[in-house]
């Protein structure tokens, strides 16, 4: 393999990871927009999505329609999105909304506590929840080569689903009435309300979308690694938040760019740096810190001025 091949191969791997990170980062950006809250439990919705898919798959096996691969994959994605979305809205109503006006430290701790509660609930409620759980192999295995680069069908599908979801979310936010309500609330909640936007409903919808998208990422992640575990959410939350910040918090394109950038950083660090495989995240987080120091508004963020 030439070094160009390695570069391309790693870029493809990085894009794969990056698209999943983007899906998580989108939620952070949306919530920050409408409620000014960083939802640190968001990573746990990602985890919850994968576990709900597992439970749904078990149901499908019992009901006897697990044989039809296309049907079952669609059913897993849609079911997991809906259920995770509902949990997202309920927790938003009872835990996150009450603290959205509190000092930042309080909302931070509440969402962190919420993350712990979700994690532990999954561990306790799911049978033998402390162990890693194998994910069913539903996507086609095998691969094809372009030049010297190996592309697996499974990865292609994961990437495709990720892109489709991002396009759909983008459409929802930028082209629909609901989306313009969300954007209006993000700019100025009170003004939006005076113009007739139903604030509560808009915030609920935002959390429904955000959690559902995180659930998609969780299911994709399960297919990609072939397993899931109750404690993968904490790290994913930090990565998603980092990605949203690198891109520019509050900007949906920023979240996508940030997520892909984070994925690329990780894969290249693992491939190029000495001891990279173990320390790839150390490198990625270092870049995040540098970003925060030298360009705190992210790649696509606006310049913020502090008003006195």
């Amino acid at each position: 393999m030439t070094s160009l091949d390695i570069l391309l191969q790693q870029s493809i791997n990085g894009l794969m990871l990056g698209i999943m990170y983007s899906l998580v980062a989108v939620g952070f950006t949306l919530y920050f927009g409408v409620l000014d809250v960083i939802n640190f439990a968001h990573g746990d919705f990602f985890m919850l999505g994968s576990f709900i898919a597992l439970a749904l798959y078990a149901v499908a096996v019992v009901a006897g329609f697990a044989g039809n691969v296309f049907l079952v994959v669609a059913y897993l994605f849609i079911g997991s999105m809906l259920l995770t979305g509902v949990v997202g809205v309920v927790t938003e109503r009872f835990c996150i909304r009450p603290v959205s006006k509190s000092p930042m430290l309080i909302s931070l701790l509440v969402t962190l506590g919420l993350g712990i509660a979700i994690r532990e609930a999954v561990r306790i409620l799911y049978p033998r929840g402390s162990d890693p759980k194998g994910f069913p192999t539903l996507l086609p295995q095998g691969s094809f080569t372009v030049g010297n680069i190996v592309i697996r069908y499974e990865n292609l599908i994961i990437f495709g689903v990720g892109v489709v979801v991002i396009v759909v979310v983008n459409f929802l936010i930028n082209r629909t009435k609901m989306g313009s309500a969300i954007r209006a609330v993000a700019q100025d909640g009170e003004a939006a309300m005076m113009m007739g936007v139903d604030l509560d409903r808009t915030i609920d919808l935002t959390f429904l979308i955000g959690s559902a998208v995180a659930a998609v990422a969780g299911v994709l992640n399960g297919f990609y690694y072939g397993q899931t575990m109750f404690n993968i959410g904490a790290m994913m939350g930090v990565i998603g938040f980092s990605a949203a910040v690198i891109g520019g918090l509050g900007n949906i394109y920023g979240a996508i760019v940030g997520g892909i950038l984070f994925g690329l950083l990780e894969t290249f660090a693992a491939a190029v740096l000495p001891y990279g495989a173990e320390n790839k995240r150390v490198f990625a987080f270092l870049i995040v810190i540098l970003f925060l120091v030298f360009r705190p508004t992210g790649i696509l963020g606006e310049k913020i001025f502090e008003r006195v």
Partner: peptide, 14 residues
Amino acid sequence: GHYLALVTIAFQFM
């Protein structure tokens, strides 16, 4: 604020 929180969380993980 949030950004300092993220820096310190990232440092913790590192």
